[in-house]
Write a protein that binds this DNA or RNA. Structure first.
Lengths: 334, 334
DNA sequence: AACGGTTAGCTAACCGTTTAGCTTCGGAGG
DNA sequence: CCTCCGAAGCTAAACGGTTAGCTAACCGTT
């Protein structure tokens, strides 16, 4: 069970056993094999807590996420896991459910548990930023993925929201759209960037073709679309802030007997649901898995070099069309 | 930083500080407040590793899951987190991506990390069972949620698949359906149970109204539905193995100009996507969050009583109709 | 033969808690 | 006044690793 028993059985000292396990010092082949044999005989596994206590490393990184149920975030999780596991680290999950006290409790934990690093995906609230600062101040490497952190003091992983939005609208225009509507979310910096991209793409910007909800939900998309429809202005394309909003918008359009894609071209964002709609629409896919991988990479970099100035990595969203979209649902059950 | 510094500053012994922190022994109000003040002054946080080493408890449970991306599983995760956090435990995530070597590596870890408990949601492969056995044999409390573990040696949390399927079909019949088709998955014990429930509900069982895919995906639903349609038999209701399959089926039906719900009543399972469809359909909702909560509860029970015979808890799936289904998408982004 | 350098391996201190068991003190009962 | 008891607090030994620093053996020089 303990390293001492292994040492005894192999007839060596604990230091030698430790050296064999960690492969860091010269041990003669003779002793090494005796030690390995003893380890096998006893089915010995080093005690992680003792090791952590002695070395000061916990081999653990935390992932702070508003809602693990969101497909984007759960894909990010996978990316983080992939690189963390590759380094023999485990990932502990902190899903805050957009709840401030919960977030605060998690950060307390993170500080107490002496986690080695943190990947942080936050909402656009101020509090997220404050909590990130607490973590950084405690000297724990942190990567902010798709998080507000406009700051220069944390490593960030972003996507090219503005550019991607511009591309999306341009694509719609190339497909023949003359007037593209924009469905966004007020108070979201992400949505704001996309609005800028939209404005960049349209030659004249008419505010009555834009509407904003409180969040990226079906309901918000539905309501925003209704709002634009009720204004009676003409449009033949819609760029929605998320696929869920696009689905909501589609429902509103259907109620007004506008057909997709015949009457209206629809473009979503994040490519989570686009291919599941009755009339599949286009969507800008967020490289969520890569975001997770990159964020974890960044955390490990910083673990090895705490001095390096903060970096910002920007990943590209890319178009997924109804044709390109795989119809093989990715979800399995049982 | 350490308990000794706190003790020194408060002018007491380390044992007293420990007693104050853990509230387990009598300490006079006088000393208690001095200690608490010192803790606040120094922003002291006990070292988890040292604590774990001394107590033999890690305050950690692991969640083994085939695919965190699956909405059902990510909701289970939330349930686990809720109760684990309530007990001051953290959850470490092990998403295996249906990959055997990955699963094996995770189990090795779990054994090495001396996790206090495990919630296991597995696929229907034999290997899942083997790995569960390894964990149980190591004496680690384990709850199998929606996992095959037909065994009597692990605590299980299941849903009433057969009964729920029977109910679902009966509901369709009560809504006027005379012939209900069944879309299942071959080699899935879950699907098999539902088939039994289906057979229980229909008075005469005609195999040509059933079709099976390889998994619970959109594509499988689509293909299975096509198969039944191509047989030319009459039906006015469809019971699908998952909401994704139902969406696939809906697409197939649409291609054959069958309208939902006018011509065909559609019933899904798991209630993950039902409310997002163009023609929302009914679905049997799996109480995923409660499954997670219950599984975690069971793990904690067993941590406190290793002798108790294994239990099986069965939770009920319940109908969610298009009317009842909330149109407020639950997913948010950024 | 004496010496220094190198190397394999060992001893023991340390990481920061918990906790059994001991001391001290004050008050109640005889 | 003495005894006994319980409460409050302390001391020191674990828990199971890592690792600095020491020892002993071996080998090539001079």
């Amino acid at each position: 069970m303990t390293i001492r028993e292994v040492a005894e059985r192999a007839g060596v000292s604990v230091a030698t056993v430790s050296a064999v396990i960690n492969e860091n010092k010269y041990v003669s082949d003779e002793l090494r094999s005796r030690v390995l044999q003893a380890i096998r005989d006893l089915d010995y596994r080093p005690n992680r807590w003792a090791k952590s206590l002695a070395t000061g490393k916990g081999y653990t990184i935390a992932y702070v996420v508003p809602d693990i149920t969101n497909p984007i975030f759960s894909q990010i999780t996978k990316g983080i896991q992939e690189v963390a596991n590759g380094q023999n680290y485990s990932v502990i999950l902190c899903s805050t459910n957009f709840d401030s006290p919960t977030l605060q409790r998690y950060v307390d934990w993170i500080l107490e548990m002496r986690v080695d690093g943190v990947v942080f995906t936050g909402s656009h609230h101020q509090q997220s930023l404050d909590e990130m600062i607490r973590i950084v101040k405690a000297g724990i490497p942190l990567a902010a993925a798709m998080a507000p952190g406009s700051a220069e003091f944390v490593d960030r992983i972003l996507i090219n929201d503005q550019e991607a939005a511009c591309q999306a609208v341009t694509i719609l225009q190339n497909q023949g759209c003359h007037a593209v509507a924009f469905l966004g979310v007020s108070e979201s910096t992400t949505s704001l960037k996309r609005l800028r991209g939209y404005q960049e793409a349209v030659t004249v910007y008419s505010p009555e073709l834009t509407a904003f909800g409180a969040d990226f939900t079906w309901q918000d998309g539905y309501t925003a679309m209704q709002a634009i429809l009720s204004r009676g202005c003409l449009f033949d394309g819609v760029f929605a802030g998320s696929d869920l909003m696009a689905l909501g918008a589609a429902a509103a359009l259907r109620e007004h007997s506008r057909r997709i894609p015949d009457d209206i071209q629809l473009m979503g964002f994040d490519n989570t649901y686009a291919h599941l709609a009755d009339s599949p629409f286009q969507s800008m896919a967020i490289p969520a898995f890569d975001i997770g991988k990159t964020a974890a990479d960044v955390v490990f970099w910083r673990m090895n070099d705490r001095q390096r100035p903060p970096t910002t990595t920007t990943l590209q969203a890319r178009l997924v069309g109804p044709a390109a979209a795989s119809r093989k649902g990715e979800f399995q059950q049982q």
